[in-house]
């Protein structure tokens, strides 16, 4: 991230407003709020949260980098979450992940150049009965096979073209 748009700062201030008088134990909920609104944790937000909670930015980075949930890069418009739970693994999620990476030409944690897709690997979505499972922007796809990946992703690409 080179520059943060001016409105981001104002947006973060607005997000912090309801947390007046918050203490350290509200740090993770605040980070979750910011990520929910911005899609990731911009540098500016970390500094502002630090000032708000009277904590050094290093402590906040320390907490934010510890947990898998927090991202420091903007995600794609469609977030592909690939479940790598045990049941999914037994049913071949490694090959599904490989096929998705191959199709999008990125690795987990990265975003495609057009900003359309990003891949995230999650420990378990909790839908083990339907393994292997992927979820794209909250929409679940059950029993995914490596050769079925392209059709799913193409569906989202078409949606994008149609709405453009």
């Amino acid at each position: 991230m080179s520059t943060v748009p001016a409105e981001t700062g104002a947006r973060i201030d607005a997000l912090l407003a309801p947390w007046k008088g918050a203490r350290r134990d509200s740090l993770i909920p605040i980070l979750q709020d910011v990520q929910e609104a911005c899609g990731f944790l911009p540098k500016e937000a970390i500094v502002k949260i630090g000032r708000h909670l009277d904590l050094p930015a290093s402590k906040i980075y320390g907490v934010a980098t510890f947990y898998n949930q927090f991202r420091f890069q903007p995600p794609g418009r469609y977030q592909v979450m690939v479940c790598r739970g045990t049941a999914c693994h037994v049913k071949g999620s490694a090959a599904v992940l490989e096929a998705i990476c191959h199709d999008l030409k990125i690795r987990p944690g990265q975003t495609t150049r057009d900003g359309l897709f990003s891949i995230e690997v999650v420990a378990c979505i909790g839908a083990c009965g339907l393994a292997p499972v992927i979820s794209i922007n909250g929409e679940f796809f059950a029993g995914v096979t490596p050769d079925g990946v392209a059709a799913i992703l193409d569906g989202f690409r078409r949606k994008e073209v149609a709405s453009a």
Binding site: R23, R24, D25, S26, L27, I28, P29, L31, Q32, G62, V63, F66, Y67, N68, Q69, F70, V122, A123
Partner: peptide, 26 residues
């Protein structure tokens, strides 16, 4: 309700407590 932020070790009692307190879940 406290939402976990995705750390397996937070299933451990003392790590979970640290996480609720807003610290690294160790």
């Amino acid at each position: 309700i406290k939402m976990g932020a995705g750390a397996f070790v937070c299933g451990e009692e003392t790590a979970l407590i640290h996480s609720i307190e807003g610290r690294r879940g160790m």
